[in-house]
């Protein structure tokens, strides 16, 4: 391998290579590493005790729990939707497939603030649904259901998008073969199709989790910003920040940052896993 590399015609010389790598490293250090280091630096600026106090604050814990709830629900709904939609789109041909895919992809191309806005318009006071919801005693916006809906919305296509290329590449022959032998939907899914997509599914779920935990704009619109009730962790961080409690804000940020790093590590591991599995 080393030899073929030497033979390769395009090699820019050592200097060019160093400059290119150097520029990339400097760019990434400034834009990616520095903010992370800074979060930790401020989080621990009042020492370990200050940090501990900030992250175990009653409201911080409640915000974390709400964030987890929204994340889990978003994950469940989007996994179900992703699996079903990917199956329908890749195993069958039907009219309107393109429209369906576009609609599923739509939520991530919309600004999070606008995502929040459309839910306000749907369930808010001026909506025709509002009287019915009020009669039924259901409160969606400025309440937990709104936060969950917004989280589902902004992470909507993540799992679907990871599954489609894998299932497309796999084709439909194996499923047809199983169906011709009389296998039912669940048997085919479990025994034939699922093993192909398990890593892609897990990968999509990781991405979905990451985005769900960190969603800010859409949730911000739909939350009533009630401390301990409708504040997710990112909203709580904003609140602390605007109250000039920087240590608290950065301490809570560090929780999300650690999650983010775990997500990145999982992502790399899953990607490597998926690649080796493909080569078998």
């Amino acid at each position: 391998m080393a030899d073929t590399k030497k033979v390769a015609v395009v090699h820019e010389g050592k200097a060019g290579r160093r400059i290119a790598i150097g520029a990339c490293v400097v760019f990434l250090v400034i834009f990616l590493v520095l903010p992370l280091v800074y979060i930790l630096a401020v989080a621990f600026s009042d020492g370990w005790l200050g940090y501990k106090k900030a992250v175990t604050d009653e409201y911080a814990v409640k915000a974390t729990l709400l964030t987890l709830l929204a994340t889990v629900v978003a994950l469940a709904i989007n996994t179900l939707m992703g699996l079903c939609a990917a199956w329908a789109v890749t195993k069958f041909s039907f009219r309107g497939k393109k429209i369906l895919t576009t609609l599923i992809d739509l939520p991530v191309t919309v600004s999070p603030v606008i995502a929040g806005l459309i839910y306000v318009l749907t369930f808010g006071r001026q909506s025709f649904l509002y009287p019915y919801l009020e009669k039924a005693g259901i409160k969606i916006i400025f309440a937990v259901p709104g936060i969950i809906l917004a989280t589902v919305f902004v992470t909507f296509p993540f799992i679907f998008r990871e599954l489609v290329p894998v299932l497309t590449a796999e084709g439909t022959d194996e499923e047809e073969a199983a169906a011709l032998m009389g296998a039912s939907f669940f048997t085919i899914f479990r025994k034939v199709t699922f093993p192909h997509m398990k890593w892609a599914l897990l990968y999509g779920m990781v991405l979905c989790t990451a985005r769900a935990m960190g969603e800010f704009g859409a949730v911000s619109v739909l939350s009533g910003h009630l401390r301990g009730k409708t504040n997710t962790l990112p909203l709580y961080i904003e609140l602390l920040y605007q109250g000039y409690d920087f240590t608290g804000a950065f301490a809570c940020s560090s929780i999300l940052m650690i999650f983010a790093i775990i997500v990145l590590i999982l992502r790399s591991a899953l990607e490597a896993r998926g690649k080796t599995e493909k080569n078998v």
Partner: peptide, 12 residues
């Protein structure tokens, strides 16, 4: 039915 690609179940 024998498929052109054989369609063997790759994970079985």
């Amino acid at each position: 039915f024998v498929f052109q690609s054989y369609a063997l179940f790759r994970y079985l």
